[in-house]
Design a protein around this nucleic acid. Structure first.
Lengths: 63, 63
DNA sequence: CATTTATGGAAAGCATGCTTGTCATTCTGG
DNA sequence: CCAGAATGACAAGCATGCTTTCCATAAATG
């Protein structure tokens, strides 16, 4: 899966740590997801979508 | 997370096995997800949403 | 320069997702 | 009644998600 986390983060001028704090996960998780090393769980994808006020499909997409 | 799999399946008169075949997963996975024993991975949630032609948020929701 | 902040990644360990196989129960058709 | 289909569940095993800890590099700041 691809994701737009880096862009959404940049639009808000948040560091990976800032985003991780808002999501309640570790910075390493944000980094790994952002770099495509793995996909978030569905619950985390919901948390991310809610934080950015976007549908999951507007943030994540298939490769 | 809650999900509407059972209803969506019933609307189409599909068995759990029918749905599993269409999703490319085991019947046990469909059963476990439907019964809330665990959540699907994000890629599987995408496959489910595509199969039913609905946004992920129209199928899955937080508890 | 020296220090701090941001990012990328590796390793080990625990939790979760998914598999195959198996079993029990219930329901339906013949 | 009997056979088969459908559902629910459990176990073992492998894959993935997430954690903490640690290290390396680059960019920004004093």
């Amino acid at each position: 899966m691809n994701n737009r986390l880096k862009v959404l983060r940049a639009e808000r001028d948040w560091s990976q740590q800032d985003l991780a704090d808002r999501l309640g996960v570790s910075r390493q998780s944000v980094n790994a997801i952002e770099k495509g090393r793995y996909d978030p769980s569905l619950p985390l994808a919901f948390t991310i979508a809610e934080l950015f006020g976007l549908p999951i499909e507007a943030i994540f997409s298939r490769d």
